[in-house]
Computed example of a mutant assay.
Amino acid sequence: MSDKSDSVFKLRPLEKTDLEVITPWFQDIEDLGRFDRTSRIPLNLAQTEDVWRDAFSASGNSGKCWFVVESNSGQVVGIVGLEAISLVNRDAIIAMFVEKSVRRLGLAIRATALVADFAFRQLGLNRLTSYYRQDNHISRDLVERLGCQVEGTMRQAWFSDGTFHDMIVVGLLRQDWMNTRQTLAKSISSETVVTFGANGCPSWSWPPQVDKCD
């Protein structure tokens, strides 16, 4: 990247207008089968808006919390969020997707780590759960770096491309994350940063910049 600003990405709340950008990502049959267990049918914009309608609930009590990953120039390049948030059990499901053209830039690990921080530090959750298709090594490597523990295998629970695949269930406890966080931060280059909001805050960035905002 030639411009330093190109290496700074922000998380901001998902807006309904973002679905115009996101919808084509899941019209890619290969990605749909690899990353989404719930559907094999590519959706048009109206159908996508219907699927996501709860995320835009005015009350904010939908149990969902989604962010887009946006470049400094305003390009939406990924989504990351929490589903099935339970304030009783203090847990949620965490999910991440990065658009093909910007993969291998380290955005997924940074954005997911930032949302893990958000879940544990801001929402007070104690557990995050995630799932991946057994042959999806990208997702496997991501959750391993976060410190997730494999908790089980759901045999032949994921059908795609004519094959039943096993589904791996992983969990991340708050204590797991606190044990992993510092080591992970040291292993990630600060040349690319994902932060919350337009102006950012060093303590809400990944990798973390300083202990607190000035």
Score class of each variant (00 low, 15 high):
residue 7 S to A: 15
residue 90 R to P: 00
residue 111 A to V: 06
residue 29 I to E: 12
residue 187 S to F: 02
residue 213 C to A: 14
residue 25 W to L: 01
residue 136 N to C: 04
residue 141 D to Y: 06
residue 123 L to T: 09
residue 12 R to F: 09
residue 93 I to M: 04
residue 4 K to D: 11
residue 195 T to S: 10
residue 195 T to W: 07
residue 115 V to S: 06
residue 158 W to C: 08
residue 70 E to F: 10
residue 167 M to W: 00
residue 162 G to Y: 05
residue 205 S to L: 05
residue 143 V to N: 00
residue 202 P to E: 12
residue 125 L to N: 05
residue 206 W to M: 15
residue 72 N to G: 13
residue 113 A to G: 07
residue 174 R to N: 14
residue 178 M to A: 13
residue 64 K to E: 15
residue 186 K to V: 01
residue 103 R to I: 09
residue 51 V to C: 05
residue 61 N to R: 15
residue 142 L to D: 03
residue 185 A to E: 09
residue 62 S to P: 06
residue 66 W to S: 09
residue 38 T to M: 04
residue 92 A to G: 02
residue 107 L to S: 04
residue 141 D to F: 10
residue 206 W to G: 00
residue 107 L to V: 04
residue 42 P to S: 05
residue 57 S to C: 13
residue 42 P to M: 04
residue 193 V to H: 01
residue 154 M to I: 02
residue 54 D to W: 03
residue 107 L to Y: 04
residue 123 L to R: 14
residue 72 N to V: 04
residue 27 Q to G: 14
residue 55 A to D: 13
residue 1 M to I: 09
residue 14 L to H: 03
residue 202 P to M: 05
residue 177 W to P: 09
residue 120 F to Q: 10
residue 197 G to W: 07
residue 150 V to H: 04
residue 102 V to E: 08
residue 17 T to S: 15
residue 106 G to E: 06
residue 195 T to Q: 15
residue 48 T to E: 15
residue 63 G to Y: 01
residue 119 A to K: 08
residue 19 L to A: 12
residue 14 L to T: 03
residue 75 Q to Y: 00
residue 142 L to A: 02
residue 159 F to Y: 15
residue 82 L to V: 13
residue 153 T to L: 09
residue 120 F to E: 12
residue 62 S to I: 06
residue 38 T to W: 09
residue 89 N to S: 15
residue 176 D to W: 11
residue 167 M to S: 14
residue 14 L to E: 03
residue 204 W to A: 07
residue 202 P to S: 14
residue 60 G to W: 08
residue 213 C to K: 12
residue 82 L to W: 10
